[in-house]
Design a protein around this nucleic acid. Structure first.
Lengths: 218, 218
DNA sequence: TTAGCATTTAAACGGTCGTTTAACTTCGCG
DNA sequence: CGCGAAGTTAAACGACCGTTTAAATGCTAA
Protein backbone atom coordinates (compact mmCIF):
# COMPACT_ATOMS: atom_id res chain seq x y z
CA UNK A 1 0.00 0.00 0.00
CA UNK A 2 1.18 3.46 -0.87
CA UNK A 3 1.83 6.07 1.80
CA UNK A 4 -0.73 8.87 2.11
CA UNK A 5 -0.03 11.81 -0.22
CA UNK A 6 0.36 14.07 2.83
CA UNK A 7 -3.19 14.78 3.85
CA UNK A 8 -3.03 16.54 7.20
CA UNK A 9 0.67 16.11 8.03
CA UNK A 10 2.65 18.15 5.49
CA UNK A 11 5.97 16.63 6.49
CA UNK A 12 8.10 15.08 3.80
CA UNK A 13 10.92 12.56 3.89
CA UNK A 14 14.40 13.43 2.66
CA UNK A 15 13.76 11.82 -0.72
CA UNK A 16 10.39 13.52 -1.03
CA UNK A 17 11.97 16.92 -0.35
CA UNK A 18 14.57 16.14 -3.00
CA UNK A 19 11.81 15.55 -5.54
CA UNK A 20 9.92 18.65 -4.38
CA UNK A 21 12.91 20.92 -4.84
CA UNK A 22 13.77 19.42 -8.22
CA UNK A 23 10.18 20.03 -9.30
CA UNK A 24 10.32 23.59 -7.98
CA UNK A 25 13.47 24.34 -9.96
CA UNK A 26 12.03 22.96 -13.20
CA UNK A 27 8.55 24.44 -12.77
CA UNK A 28 10.13 27.84 -12.21
CA UNK A 29 11.90 27.92 -15.57
CA UNK A 30 9.68 25.74 -17.80
CA UNK A 31 6.31 26.22 -16.13
CA UNK A 32 4.05 23.46 -14.84
CA UNK A 33 2.73 22.06 -18.11
CA UNK A 34 6.12 22.63 -19.76
CA UNK A 35 7.84 20.31 -17.30
CA UNK A 36 7.65 16.53 -17.71
CA UNK A 37 7.62 14.14 -14.80
CA UNK A 38 10.54 12.35 -16.47
CA UNK A 39 12.60 15.55 -16.27
CA UNK A 40 11.72 15.96 -12.62
CA UNK A 41 12.64 12.35 -11.88
CA UNK A 42 15.96 12.75 -13.70
CA UNK A 43 16.75 16.03 -11.91
CA UNK A 44 15.98 14.42 -8.56
CA UNK A 45 17.87 11.24 -9.46
CA UNK A 46 14.95 8.88 -8.95
CA UNK A 47 12.76 6.67 -11.12
CA UNK A 48 9.75 8.15 -12.91
CA UNK A 49 7.29 5.97 -11.04
CA UNK A 50 8.44 7.32 -7.66
CA UNK A 51 6.58 10.56 -8.31
CA UNK A 52 3.23 8.84 -8.65
CA UNK A 53 4.22 6.56 -5.78
CA UNK A 54 4.97 9.39 -3.36
CA UNK A 55 2.66 12.16 -4.54
CA UNK A 56 -0.07 10.45 -6.53
CA UNK A 57 0.10 12.65 -9.61
CA UNK A 58 1.89 15.58 -11.20
CA UNK A 59 -0.84 17.98 -10.05
CA UNK A 60 -0.64 16.77 -6.46
CA UNK A 61 3.13 17.20 -6.66
CA UNK A 62 2.57 20.86 -7.54
CA UNK A 63 0.24 21.20 -4.59
CA UNK A 64 2.89 19.60 -2.36
CA UNK A 65 5.44 22.16 -3.58
CA UNK A 66 3.10 24.86 -2.30
CA UNK A 67 2.32 23.30 1.07
CA UNK A 68 6.06 22.69 1.46
CA UNK A 69 6.86 26.41 1.17
CA UNK A 70 3.78 28.22 2.43
CA UNK A 71 3.79 27.16 6.08
CA UNK A 72 7.09 28.91 6.87
CA UNK A 73 5.97 32.18 5.30
CA UNK A 74 2.76 32.24 7.33
CA UNK A 75 4.64 31.90 10.62
CA UNK A 76 7.10 34.66 9.74
CA UNK A 77 4.31 37.06 8.82
CA UNK A 78 2.42 36.56 12.07
CA UNK A 79 5.60 36.93 14.11
CA UNK A 80 6.25 40.28 12.49
CA UNK A 81 2.73 41.49 13.15
CA UNK A 82 3.00 40.72 16.88
CA UNK A 83 5.96 43.05 17.52
CA UNK A 84 4.46 46.03 19.31
CA UNK A 85 7.65 48.05 19.86
CA UNK A 86 7.71 49.47 16.35
CA UNK A 87 6.22 52.69 15.03
CA UNK A 88 3.78 52.40 12.09
CA UNK A 89 6.39 53.42 9.55
CA UNK A 90 8.95 51.06 11.10
CA UNK A 91 6.43 48.25 10.88
CA UNK A 92 5.80 48.92 7.22
CA UNK A 93 9.52 49.05 6.52
CA UNK A 94 10.13 45.83 8.40
CA UNK A 95 7.34 44.23 6.38
CA UNK A 96 8.89 45.36 3.13
CA UNK A 97 12.35 44.17 4.12
CA UNK A 98 11.24 40.73 5.24
CA UNK A 99 9.01 40.30 2.19
CA UNK A 100 11.81 41.22 -0.20
CA UNK A 101 14.22 38.86 1.55
CA UNK A 102 11.76 36.00 1.56
CA UNK A 103 10.75 36.41 -2.08
CA UNK A 104 14.30 36.71 -3.34
CA UNK A 105 15.48 33.81 -1.19
CA UNK A 106 12.75 31.56 -2.59
CA UNK A 107 12.81 33.14 -6.02
CA UNK A 108 12.15 29.85 -7.81
CA UNK A 109 9.07 29.17 -5.74
CA UNK A 110 7.64 32.60 -6.39
CA UNK A 111 8.10 32.12 -10.11
CA UNK A 112 6.05 28.95 -9.74
CA UNK A 113 3.50 30.88 -7.71
CA UNK A 114 3.20 33.62 -10.32
CA UNK A 115 2.86 31.02 -13.05
CA UNK A 116 0.13 29.22 -11.14
CA UNK A 117 -1.70 32.49 -10.58
CA UNK A 118 -1.45 33.27 -14.29
CA UNK A 119 -2.67 29.93 -15.66
CA UNK A 120 -5.01 28.87 -12.89
CA UNK A 121 -6.09 25.48 -14.21
CA UNK A 122 -6.11 23.99 -10.71
CA UNK A 123 -9.15 25.12 -8.72
CA UNK A 124 -7.88 24.08 -5.28
CA UNK A 125 -4.53 25.79 -5.84
CA UNK A 126 -6.20 29.00 -7.00
CA UNK A 127 -8.17 28.98 -3.76
CA UNK A 128 -5.05 28.59 -1.63
CA UNK A 129 -3.30 31.43 -3.44
CA UNK A 130 -6.30 33.74 -3.22
CA UNK A 131 -6.75 33.03 0.50
CA UNK A 132 -3.10 33.79 1.24
CA UNK A 133 -3.22 37.02 -0.74
CA UNK A 134 -6.42 38.26 0.87
CA UNK A 135 -5.04 37.46 4.33
CA UNK A 136 -1.82 39.36 3.66
CA UNK A 137 -3.84 42.27 2.34
CA UNK A 138 -5.85 42.40 5.56
CA UNK A 139 -2.65 42.58 7.61
CA UNK A 140 -1.34 45.55 5.66
CA UNK A 141 -4.73 47.26 5.75
CA UNK A 142 -4.64 47.06 9.55
CA UNK A 143 -1.10 48.46 9.65
CA UNK A 144 -2.09 51.43 7.53
CA UNK A 145 -5.27 52.08 9.51
CA UNK A 146 -3.13 52.09 12.68
CA UNK A 147 -0.80 54.68 11.22
CA UNK A 148 -3.70 56.85 10.16
CA UNK A 149 -5.27 56.66 13.63
CA UNK A 150 -1.96 57.85 15.09
CA UNK A 151 -1.93 60.75 12.57
CA UNK A 152 1.45 59.78 11.12
CA UNK A 153 0.01 58.42 7.82
CA UNK A 154 -1.88 60.50 5.29
CA UNK A 155 -5.52 59.82 4.74
CA UNK A 156 -6.71 58.63 1.34
CA UNK A 157 -4.24 55.79 0.88
CA UNK A 158 -5.56 52.93 -1.23
CA UNK A 159 -4.27 50.01 0.83
CA UNK A 160 -5.16 47.41 -1.78
CA UNK A 161 -3.27 49.25 -4.49
CA UNK A 162 -0.36 49.75 -2.13
CA UNK A 163 -0.05 46.03 -1.50
CA UNK A 164 -0.38 45.26 -5.20
CA UNK A 165 2.34 47.83 -5.84
CA UNK A 166 4.78 46.36 -3.32
CA UNK A 167 4.32 42.75 -4.37
CA UNK A 168 4.22 43.68 -8.05
CA UNK A 169 7.52 45.50 -7.78
CA UNK A 170 9.21 42.61 -6.03
CA UNK A 171 7.80 40.17 -8.56
CA UNK A 172 9.22 42.23 -11.40
CA UNK A 173 12.65 42.09 -9.79
CA UNK A 174 12.40 38.43 -8.80
CA UNK A 175 11.22 37.17 -12.18
CA UNK A 176 12.93 39.45 -14.67
CA UNK A 177 16.52 38.87 -13.62
CA UNK A 178 17.75 38.07 -17.13
CA UNK A 179 16.57 41.40 -18.46
CA UNK A 180 17.66 43.24 -15.33
CA UNK A 181 21.32 42.52 -15.97
CA UNK A 182 21.03 44.27 -19.33
CA UNK A 183 19.05 47.25 -18.04
CA UNK A 184 20.59 47.99 -14.69
CA UNK A 185 23.75 50.15 -14.58
CA UNK A 186 26.36 48.26 -12.58
CA UNK A 187 30.02 47.32 -12.44
CA UNK A 188 29.85 44.24 -10.28
CA UNK A 189 32.32 41.43 -10.80
CA UNK A 190 30.18 38.47 -9.85
CA UNK A 191 26.51 37.65 -10.28
CA UNK A 192 26.15 37.29 -6.53
CA UNK A 193 27.47 40.82 -5.96
CA UNK A 194 25.06 42.14 -8.58
CA UNK A 195 22.10 40.37 -7.02
CA UNK A 196 23.01 41.75 -3.61
CA UNK A 197 23.12 45.25 -5.08
CA UNK A 198 19.71 44.72 -6.65
CA UNK A 199 18.31 43.50 -3.36
CA UNK A 200 19.57 46.54 -1.47
CA UNK A 201 18.42 49.00 -4.11
CA UNK A 202 15.00 47.39 -4.17
CA UNK A 203 14.63 47.73 -0.40
CA UNK A 204 15.86 51.33 -0.43
CA UNK A 205 13.48 52.22 -3.25
CA UNK A 206 10.45 50.61 -1.63
CA UNK A 207 11.15 52.16 1.77
CA UNK A 208 11.61 55.57 0.23
CA UNK A 209 8.44 55.22 -1.80
CA UNK A 210 6.49 54.02 1.21
CA UNK A 211 7.62 56.87 3.41
CA UNK A 212 6.88 59.38 0.68
CA UNK A 213 3.41 58.14 -0.23
CA UNK A 214 2.35 57.46 3.35
CA UNK A 215 3.38 60.87 4.72
CA UNK A 216 2.90 63.04 1.63
CA UNK A 217 0.27 65.78 1.98
CA UNK A 218 -1.48 66.41 -1.33
CA UNK B 1 3.28 27.04 -52.17
CA UNK B 2 2.61 28.43 -48.71
CA UNK B 3 2.62 32.18 -48.07
CA UNK B 4 5.59 33.58 -46.19
CA UNK B 5 5.15 33.43 -42.38
CA UNK B 6 5.29 37.23 -42.28
CA UNK B 7 8.98 37.97 -42.54
CA UNK B 8 9.33 41.72 -43.10
CA UNK B 9 5.68 42.64 -43.70
CA UNK B 10 3.75 42.06 -40.46
CA UNK B 11 0.36 42.49 -42.08
CA UNK B 12 -2.19 39.74 -41.65
CA UNK B 13 -5.32 38.82 -43.56
CA UNK B 14 -8.71 38.85 -41.87
CA UNK B 15 -8.61 35.09 -41.29
CA UNK B 16 -5.08 35.27 -39.96
CA UNK B 17 -6.07 37.98 -37.48
CA UNK B 18 -8.97 35.79 -36.40
CA UNK B 19 -6.54 32.97 -35.62
CA UNK B 20 -4.13 35.36 -33.91
CA UNK B 21 -6.80 36.72 -31.57
CA UNK B 22 -8.14 33.25 -30.79
CA UNK B 23 -4.60 32.17 -29.92
CA UNK B 24 -4.10 35.27 -27.77
CA UNK B 25 -7.26 34.56 -25.78
CA UNK B 26 -6.32 30.94 -25.16
CA UNK B 27 -2.63 31.59 -24.46
CA UNK B 28 -3.65 34.19 -21.88
CA UNK B 29 -5.65 31.77 -19.75
CA UNK B 30 -3.98 28.41 -20.40
CA UNK B 31 -0.43 29.51 -21.21
CA UNK B 32 1.49 28.69 -24.37
CA UNK B 33 2.32 25.03 -23.71
CA UNK B 34 -1.06 24.53 -22.06
CA UNK B 35 -2.89 25.51 -25.23
CA UNK B 36 -3.52 23.01 -28.04
CA UNK B 37 -3.41 24.00 -31.69
CA UNK B 38 -6.65 22.09 -32.02
CA UNK B 39 -8.22 24.37 -29.38
CA UNK B 40 -6.97 27.43 -31.22
CA UNK B 41 -8.36 26.13 -34.51
CA UNK B 42 -11.73 25.39 -32.90
CA UNK B 43 -11.88 28.82 -31.22
CA UNK B 44 -11.06 30.50 -34.52
CA UNK B 45 -13.47 28.28 -36.44
CA UNK B 46 -10.90 26.91 -38.86
CA UNK B 47 -9.27 23.58 -39.57
CA UNK B 48 -6.21 22.49 -37.55
CA UNK B 49 -3.96 22.40 -40.59
CA UNK B 50 -4.59 26.09 -41.33
CA UNK B 51 -2.35 27.10 -38.46
CA UNK B 52 0.66 25.33 -39.92
CA UNK B 53 -0.40 26.54 -43.34
CA UNK B 54 -0.52 30.21 -42.36
CA UNK B 55 2.07 30.47 -39.60
CA UNK B 56 4.36 27.45 -40.04
CA UNK B 57 4.24 26.23 -36.45
CA UNK B 58 2.77 26.88 -33.03
CA UNK B 59 5.91 28.76 -31.94
CA UNK B 60 5.83 31.01 -34.98
CA UNK B 61 2.16 31.67 -34.24
CA UNK B 62 3.17 32.93 -30.79
CA UNK B 63 5.75 35.19 -32.39
CA UNK B 64 3.09 36.47 -34.78
CA UNK B 65 0.84 37.30 -31.81
CA UNK B 66 3.64 39.52 -30.53
CA UNK B 67 4.48 41.26 -33.80
CA UNK B 68 0.72 41.80 -34.26
CA UNK B 69 0.45 43.77 -30.99
CA UNK B 70 3.83 45.38 -30.45
CA UNK B 71 3.97 47.75 -33.40
CA UNK B 72 1.01 49.85 -32.20
CA UNK B 73 2.43 50.25 -28.71
CA UNK B 74 5.76 51.50 -30.03
CA UNK B 75 4.11 54.25 -32.07
CA UNK B 76 1.97 55.44 -29.16
CA UNK B 77 4.99 55.64 -26.85
CA UNK B 78 7.03 57.76 -29.24
CA UNK B 79 4.09 60.08 -29.89
CA UNK B 80 3.80 60.71 -26.18
CA UNK B 81 7.49 61.45 -25.83
CA UNK B 82 7.40 64.08 -28.56
CA UNK B 83 4.86 66.35 -26.82
CA UNK B 84 6.89 69.26 -25.52
CA UNK B 85 4.07 71.31 -23.96
CA UNK B 86 3.94 69.24 -20.79
CA UNK B 87 5.79 69.73 -17.51
CA UNK B 88 7.94 66.84 -16.26
CA UNK B 89 5.31 65.71 -13.77
CA UNK B 90 2.56 66.01 -16.38
CA UNK B 91 4.63 63.89 -18.75
CA UNK B 92 5.08 61.20 -16.14
CA UNK B 93 1.37 61.23 -15.36
CA UNK B 94 0.44 61.03 -19.02
CA UNK B 95 2.83 58.10 -19.37
CA UNK B 96 1.20 56.30 -16.48
CA UNK B 97 -2.29 56.95 -17.76
CA UNK B 98 -1.60 55.78 -21.29
CA UNK B 99 0.33 52.74 -20.05
CA UNK B 100 -2.50 51.70 -17.75
CA UNK B 101 -5.07 52.15 -20.49
CA UNK B 102 -3.04 50.19 -23.02
CA UNK B 103 -2.25 47.32 -20.66
CA UNK B 104 -5.82 46.96 -19.43
CA UNK B 105 -7.21 47.27 -22.95
CA UNK B 106 -4.95 44.48 -24.18
CA UNK B 107 -5.05 42.58 -20.92
CA UNK B 108 -5.01 39.19 -22.63
CA UNK B 109 -1.91 40.03 -24.59
CA UNK B 110 -0.06 41.22 -21.52
CA UNK B 111 -0.87 37.99 -19.75
CA UNK B 112 0.73 36.22 -22.69
CA UNK B 113 3.67 38.58 -22.46
CA UNK B 114 4.16 37.95 -18.76
CA UNK B 115 3.90 34.21 -19.34
CA UNK B 116 6.49 34.35 -22.10
CA UNK B 117 8.81 36.37 -19.88
CA UNK B 118 8.39 33.83 -17.10
CA UNK B 119 9.01 30.66 -19.13
CA UNK B 120 11.39 31.95 -21.74
CA UNK B 121 11.81 28.81 -23.85
CA UNK B 122 11.92 30.83 -27.06
CA UNK B 123 15.23 32.63 -27.50
CA UNK B 124 14.11 35.04 -30.22
CA UNK B 125 11.01 36.04 -28.27
CA UNK B 126 13.01 36.67 -25.10
CA UNK B 127 15.23 38.99 -27.11
CA UNK B 128 12.26 40.97 -28.46
CA UNK B 129 10.78 41.36 -24.98
CA UNK B 130 14.09 42.41 -23.42
CA UNK B 131 14.72 44.96 -26.17
CA UNK B 132 11.28 46.52 -25.73
CA UNK B 133 11.68 46.71 -21.96
CA UNK B 134 15.15 48.27 -22.12
CA UNK B 135 13.92 50.81 -24.66
CA UNK B 136 10.97 51.83 -22.48
CA UNK B 137 13.27 52.10 -19.49
CA UNK B 138 15.52 54.51 -21.38
CA UNK B 139 12.53 56.74 -22.18
CA UNK B 140 11.53 57.01 -18.54
CA UNK B 141 15.12 57.55 -17.45
CA UNK B 142 15.29 60.54 -19.79
CA UNK B 143 11.99 61.93 -18.43
CA UNK B 144 13.26 61.72 -14.87
CA UNK B 145 16.63 63.24 -15.73
CA UNK B 146 14.76 66.15 -17.39
CA UNK B 147 12.71 66.74 -14.26
CA UNK B 148 15.81 66.67 -12.08
CA UNK B 149 17.59 69.18 -14.34
CA UNK B 150 14.59 71.52 -13.97
CA UNK B 151 14.80 71.07 -10.16
CA UNK B 152 11.21 69.82 -9.87
CA UNK B 153 12.21 66.17 -9.20
CA UNK B 154 14.17 65.03 -6.18
CA UNK B 155 17.63 63.65 -6.71
CA UNK B 156 18.38 60.04 -5.81
CA UNK B 157 15.52 58.45 -7.69
CA UNK B 158 16.23 54.93 -8.89
CA UNK B 159 14.69 55.16 -12.35
CA UNK B 160 15.00 51.43 -13.04
CA UNK B 161 13.21 50.53 -9.84
CA UNK B 162 10.57 53.15 -10.55
CA UNK B 163 9.78 51.62 -13.94
CA UNK B 164 9.72 48.13 -12.46
CA UNK B 165 7.35 49.42 -9.80
CA UNK B 166 4.94 51.01 -12.27
CA UNK B 167 4.81 48.06 -14.65
CA UNK B 168 4.75 45.57 -11.78
CA UNK B 169 1.78 47.30 -10.20
CA UNK B 170 -0.17 47.35 -13.44
CA UNK B 171 0.68 43.70 -14.07
CA UNK B 172 -0.65 42.76 -10.65
CA UNK B 173 -3.93 44.48 -11.43
CA UNK B 174 -4.14 43.18 -15.00
CA UNK B 175 -3.40 39.56 -14.17
CA UNK B 176 -4.97 39.07 -10.75
CA UNK B 177 -8.51 40.12 -11.57
CA UNK B 178 -10.12 36.99 -10.12
CA UNK B 179 -8.58 37.59 -6.73
CA UNK B 180 -9.15 41.35 -6.95
CA UNK B 181 -12.90 40.97 -6.89
CA UNK B 182 -12.65 39.16 -3.56
CA UNK B 183 -10.15 41.58 -2.01
CA UNK B 184 -11.33 44.95 -3.22
CA UNK B 185 -14.13 46.69 -1.32
CA UNK B 186 -16.81 47.65 -3.82
CA UNK B 187 -20.55 47.78 -4.41
CA UNK B 188 -20.65 47.78 -8.18
CA UNK B 189 -23.53 46.14 -9.99
CA UNK B 190 -21.75 44.94 -13.11
CA UNK B 191 -18.29 43.59 -13.80
CA UNK B 192 -17.68 46.38 -16.27
CA UNK B 193 -18.44 49.01 -13.63
CA UNK B 194 -16.07 47.29 -11.21
CA UNK B 195 -13.28 47.14 -13.77
CA UNK B 196 -13.73 50.82 -14.54
CA UNK B 197 -13.45 51.61 -10.83
CA UNK B 198 -10.29 49.53 -10.60
CA UNK B 199 -8.82 51.32 -13.58
CA UNK B 200 -9.50 54.74 -12.10
CA UNK B 201 -8.21 53.81 -8.65
CA UNK B 202 -5.07 52.37 -10.18
CA UNK B 203 -4.37 55.57 -12.10
CA UNK B 204 -5.06 57.75 -9.05
CA UNK B 205 -2.81 55.60 -6.88
CA UNK B 206 0.07 55.58 -9.35
CA UNK B 207 -0.15 59.33 -9.99
CA UNK B 208 -0.24 60.06 -6.28
CA UNK B 209 2.70 57.74 -5.64
CA UNK B 210 4.68 59.23 -8.49
CA UNK B 211 4.15 62.79 -7.36
CA UNK B 212 5.03 61.86 -3.78
CA UNK B 213 8.19 59.94 -4.53
CA UNK B 214 9.42 62.34 -7.22
CA UNK B 215 8.98 65.51 -5.16
CA UNK B 216 9.55 64.14 -1.63
CA UNK B 217 12.56 65.59 0.19
CA UNK B 218 14.12 62.96 2.46
C1' DT C 1 16.20 -17.94 7.42
C1' DT C 2 12.13 -16.31 5.72
C1' DA C 3 7.65 -14.08 5.52
C1' DG C 4 5.86 -9.55 4.82
C1' DC C 5 6.00 -4.99 3.59
C1' DA C 6 7.92 -0.68 1.61
C1' DT C 7 10.66 0.74 -2.07
C1' DT C 8 12.51 0.75 -6.73
C1' DT C 9 12.76 -0.58 -11.36
C1' DA C 10 12.07 -1.18 -16.64
C1' DA C 11 8.56 -1.69 -19.56
C1' DA C 12 4.24 -0.96 -21.30
C1' DC C 13 -0.36 1.48 -21.69
C1' DG C 14 -3.72 4.53 -23.74
C1' DG C 15 -4.09 9.08 -25.07
C1' DT C 16 -2.92 13.50 -26.93
C1' DC C 17 0.36 16.38 -28.91
C1' DG C 18 2.23 19.26 -33.19
C1' DT C 19 2.75 18.44 -37.73
C1' DT C 20 2.24 16.35 -42.39
C1' DT C 21 -0.10 14.28 -46.07
C1' DA C 22 -2.94 13.74 -49.96
C1' DA C 23 -7.24 14.47 -51.78
C1' DC C 24 -10.65 17.91 -52.49
C1' DT C 25 -12.83 22.63 -53.28
C1' DT C 26 -12.64 27.42 -54.47
C1' DC C 27 -11.31 31.07 -57.18
C1' DG C 28 -8.97 34.29 -60.47
C1' DC C 29 -7.72 34.89 -65.06
C1' DG C 30 -6.14 33.70 -70.05
C1' DC D 1 -14.53 27.31 -70.29
C1' DG D 2 -10.36 25.31 -68.20
C1' DC D 3 -6.36 25.20 -65.74
C1' DG D 4 -3.17 26.17 -62.15
C1' DA D 5 -2.52 28.16 -57.77
C1' DA D 6 -4.48 29.07 -53.23
C1' DG D 7 -7.28 27.49 -49.71
C1' DT D 8 -9.42 23.81 -47.00
C1' DT D 9 -10.32 19.31 -45.34
C1' DA D 10 -10.22 14.63 -42.75
C1' DA D 11 -7.06 11.41 -41.72
C1' DA D 12 -2.82 9.71 -40.48
C1' DC D 13 2.01 10.02 -38.52
C1' DG D 14 5.52 9.47 -35.10
C1' DA D 15 6.76 11.28 -30.75
C1' DC D 16 6.06 12.06 -26.19
C1' DC D 17 2.96 12.68 -22.34
C1' DG D 18 1.27 11.08 -17.33
C1' DT D 19 0.30 7.03 -15.33
C1' DT D 20 0.13 1.96 -14.36
C1' DT D 21 1.89 -2.54 -14.03
C1' DA D 22 4.27 -6.46 -12.46
C1' DA D 23 8.43 -8.12 -11.26
C1' DA D 24 12.78 -7.33 -8.58
C1' DT D 25 15.08 -5.50 -4.58
C1' DG D 26 15.91 -3.95 0.16
C1' DC D 27 14.76 -4.12 4.89
C1' DT D 28 12.75 -5.51 9.32
C1' DA D 29 10.90 -8.52 12.63
C1' DA D 30 9.76 -13.15 14.05
Amino acid sequence: MKPKPSAEAPEFSEKQVCILEAAERLFSVRGFVGTTVREIAHEAGVNVAMIAYYFGSKEQLLLAVFTHRISAARIQMEYLLADKNLSPIEKMEALVESTVDRMLKHRDFHRVLLNAQLTSGNEELAGIIADTKVKNLEIVRKMIADGQRQKVFTRGIDATMLVLMITGTIYQVATGSAYLKAAYPHHDATDAAFEERIRKNLIVHLKRTLKAVLTYEA
